[in-house]
């Protein structure tokens, strides 16, 4: 049997392909690189100090509250997802939805802060301090350095929420929200290494 060639219907013209671009301001990306380098040095210092004090690090790490750490991972990942949804809403010019997603991100980010403060309160109750051991020095300084970034991230998210409520972000005017979003995701990214490294790997 002869196969008949049916002409295919003409395809819709593909959407214009844009060249690659960075989401957000170039300056924030240099800032993010500096932050990543700082955290990277911290992580390396932790890993090699641990290699020389295995028993001590394993014993003191076992006393950390991993459940709180895992809960905080879920909170940060969820906050990051809410920020992505906010950016997508801005692309659709849906300012109210954008603001709602950002508010969700602020609340989940605040949840991280509450859990972390509870963890610090418990640590101080057990007389854990920067000078109590090399592990505690790293645990407190690394997590607090990250904690300060979460606080700054929350301040940025509140500013973004304010901007979204004023309808400031829309296609063609995405720089502000993309810049803030990139910073928030960096805070999340760092935690995704900090948590397994300091709380789990032994």
């Amino acid at each position: 049997m002869e196969t008949s060639t049916v002409p295919l219907p003409p395809r819709a013209a593909p959407a214009p392909v844009e060249g690659p671009r960075l989401a957000g301001d170039l300056a924030i990306w240099f800032f993010i690189l500096a932050e990543l380098l700082a955290f990277g040095v911290f992580f390396a210092a932790y890993a090699f100090t641990r290699a020389n004090h295995i028993e001590l690090f394993n014993a003191e790490q076992a006393a950390l509250n991993r459940n709180a750490g895992a809960l905080n991972t879920v909170l940060l990942l969820t906050a990051s997802y809410f920020v992505v949804r906010a950016v997508q809403a801005a692309e659709r010019e849906a300012s109210r939805q954008c603001a709602s997603w950002l508010l969700g991100a602020i609340l989940t980010g605040f949840g991280f802060v509450v859990v972390k403060l509870g963890e610090y309160a418990a640590a101080f109750e057990h007389n854990i301090s920067l000078s109590s051991s090399p592990f505690h020095m790293f645990y407190l300084s690394l997590t607090f350095f990250h904690f300060m970034h979460v606080i700054l991230g929350l301040v940025i998210l509140v500013a973004m929420w304010n901007g979204a409520r004023q309808g400031r972000y829309r296609p063609g005017d995405m720089n502000g929200i993309e810049t803030g979003a990139a910073y928030w995701h960096m805070v999340d990214l760092v935690w995704l290494i900090l948590f397994p490294l300091v709380y789990v790997i032994h």
Binding site: P20, L22, A23, G40, A44, V84, H185, I193
Partner: peptide, 26 residues
Amino acid sequence: FMALRHAPLLWRAITMGWMILVWAVI
């Protein structure tokens, strides 16, 4: 999430390279 999939290759290489390096050191 950071949309670096759509960024210039250099930026993607730097950020992914950072993570590869950090995990290699660990």
